[in-house]
């Protein structure tokens, strides 16, 4: 076992959302001052291992059963070991696809849409798990054109 000397992971540009709307106070100091904490960093929430994390775009509607819709943005971490039930970016015969991984008697990749037939992985197919999806960024408010 080799002991490493990690410096920790450096995140990219940080996007800070202040937790306290701390108004300028000319008279008495704010009673909240003692309770001030660091701002919540959304990037830090979504990205735990920056060098291994990539964003992907969803193309298609066959994963709505797990709350993933067409055009959503996925946070994909390559450093994670895939577990049973994970949504993964999988390379199936050279195609980039989004599937749900099941690790039963034999590993399988499935759609998550009740209207779609169960996808059985053919035997002689070349499959590679590219990365594990950790978050889905789904925009609720429509963009006005």
């Amino acid at each position: 076992m080799i002991v490493r000397n990690p410096k920790g992971v450096v995140l990219g540009d940080e996007l800070l959302v202040p937790m306290f709307a701390h108004a300028i106070c000319a008279g008495f100091p704010s009673p909240a001052d003692d309770f001030l904490e660091d701002a919540v960093d959304v990037a830090r929430l979504l990205i735990t291992n920056a060098p291994a994390t990539f964003l992907w775009r969803v193309d298609g509607a066959s994963m709505t059963g797990v709350g993933i819709f067409d055009r959503d943005i996925l946070v994909v971490d390559r450093s994670l070991e895939p577990r049973d039930g994970d949504v993964v970016v999988a390379i199936v015969d050279g195609e980039r696809s989004l599937k749900r991984l099941t690790l039963g008697a034999r590993p399988n990749l499935a759609f998550a849409n009740s209207r779609m037939p169960v996808y059985e992985l053919p035997d002689l197919v070349d499959v590679e798990i590219w990365g594990v999806v950790t978050w889905n960024l789904h925009r609720l408010r429509a963009i006005r054109r």
């Binding site: 990539f54 964003l55 298609g60 509607a61 970016v89 980039r96 696809s97 989004l98």
Partner: peptide, 14 residues
């Protein structure tokens, strides 16, 4: 792929 939101790699769900 890694620096533009409008050029992200796409994963097909089908």
């Amino acid at each position: 792929y890694t620096t533009r939101v409008d050029e992200l790699p796409a994963a097909r769900t089908g």
